[in-house]
Design a protein around this nucleic acid. Sequence first.
DNA 1: CCACTAAGAATATCTTAGCCT
DNA 2: AGGCTAAGATATTCTTAGTGG
Lengths: 126, 126
Amino acid sequence: MKTLGEQLKALRLGQETKKSQKEFGKLFDLSESTIGMYERNERKPDYETLQKFAEHFSVSIDYLITGKKSNAAQSDLSNDDKEMIEFFSNPKLNLFFKEMADSPEEQIEELREFWEIIKKRELNKK
Amino acid sequence: MKTLGEQLKALRLGQETKKSQKEFGKLFDLSESTIGMYERNERKPDYETLQKFAEHFSVSIDYLITGKKSNAAQSDLSNDDKEMIEFFSNPKLNLFFKEMADSPEEQIEELREFWEIIKKRELNKK
DNA sequence: CCACTAAGAATATCTTAGCCT
DNA sequence: AGGCTAAGATATTCTTAGTGG
């Protein structure tokens, strides 16, 4: 389980454009020193700042604090939703589904029929 | 969007056994006054306490702070992902999806190839 | 009993300036 | 430049004691 500091540092440097602590701080009206202290877990940002961080990186506050991927898992999503999230996290399939979501009903239906065939074929094997 | 204070108060009183601020505080080694201040948003709990609250009520920290139902929606998931969940909430497709999630990689790959064909065919129509 | 307020003590944070690599 | 440390100024929080419904 990663600390908030580790998360922040990873996010600051994990971008295409790695930022210095100073640059990073400017985004949130914080001094370079403050950022450093966050990363070393010597200080903690207030809630407002925390939310800004979360928003900027498009992650949840739970993720920032606890390092857990899906805080949703803990609370308000159904198991099915959780499975979906897990499933979608696979980059290949993710793209696949995005396409499907934008496609006409008939095509999806067609795909589903083909899927039936695949599954039946598997049954016959056994 | 509800405040942290409102959330806490609602959770404290929303249980089968409503608790007084004093009783509630005892659970987390906090004085009754402190709980009251939280609920009136005059003070904010530190991260540790916040996590205890979240754990005790089985909610996410994001939910406590922002009042948003799906913290996943807010952060972990992109808008596209949110659309997908919407998409698959269709019961028919939902079943389809569940099967896929439990199927071997090769079958999914096969399905994807068939999908490519469908899409190409559509292109030729135009 | 329950919740709220006040005030002081205790903690924690933010910045600037300086230091090191 | 980039990052870290120190120290004072600032700001916030927690508790106890007291007030009122």
